[in-house]
Design a protein around this nucleic acid. Structure first.
Lengths: 133, 133
DNA sequence: TGCCGTAGTTCAAGATATACGAACTATGGA
DNA sequence: TCCATAGTTCGTATATCTTGAACTACGGCA
């Protein structure tokens, strides 16, 4: 089993962060982790919205978050303790993470009243509309 | 030729925006467009860093930006006039775009002094490091 | 009106990345 | 030593991205 890789804060890129958080599952995981004031195990964050993420996918998602520099994962006995690296990132890219988390909140608040279910990315929506090309 | 699709501002998603801007080429295009106070044609933005983007790729990139709700494209004679939809997005997701653009600036300023060339996403960097697994 | 040049789009196929079940590893008890 | 739990890695099916080649749309000019 490869040891977990955490990039130095100087190697963290905007592209990496945006890519990591452009996935609804990862964004949800990260938002919940950021809302906590303590570490969380992977399985504690296995529910995204209405569905349960398979273990293998969950592991990949955590790897992406970790390699983007967004979370720090440390083995603690049989489980894994995940924490955000908010403070470090705030120092390097001031305001970025709060703005993204806030935007996610706005969108979630927006979607609820009309019961719009599982909105996907703009691209996905368009693809669906334009299917019969 | 399909008419150009622009999502209503209410259909614009955070995921779509982050995904669109998580690509270095698109981020560069968008940043330069946002820095302008007038419309720009596609070819005017064809240089990204040191390389020239092929026309077909450029077209795809503009489609992604457009469908994410980030830019508005209007045909003007033989060419295309592209403008950002900053104001609309600022209203829906306050602070998001400025934070991202600022982060890109920080990163660019960071990379120059040490002449670090064409940094890729964190994932790509890691993949390279871990190639001989 | 027909023809040409320019700007951009669409198509197709190869490269690359993602999702997830099955098999595996690491750790802590009993 | 054996088992259960938490997570990782592998393999493969699927989706997305990149880009050259072919195409469309428009304007200008003879």
């Amino acid at each position: 089993m490869r040891p977990l890789f955490h990039p130095s804060i100087d190697d963290v890129t905007v592209e990496g962060i945006l890519h990591a958080l452009s996935d609804p599952v990862r964004a949800s995981i990260y938002a919940r982790l950021a809302g906590l004031d303590c570490a969380a195990t992977c399985t504690a964050l296995q529910q995204a919205g209405d569905r349960t993420i398979p273990k293998s996918s969950l592991s990949q998602h955590f790897r992406v978050l970790r390699e983007a520099g967004l979370v720090r994962s440390e083995r603690a006995g049989v489980e894994m303790h995940n924490t955000t690296r908010c403070a470090e990132i705030e120092q390097r890219f001031p305001g970025l993470i709060p703005a993204i988390l806030n935007a996610h909140r706005v969108q979630a608040a927006d979607a609820l009243p009309s019961r719009t279910p599982g909105r996907r990315t703009a691209t996905a929506v368009v693809r669906k509309k334009a299917k019969g090309r």
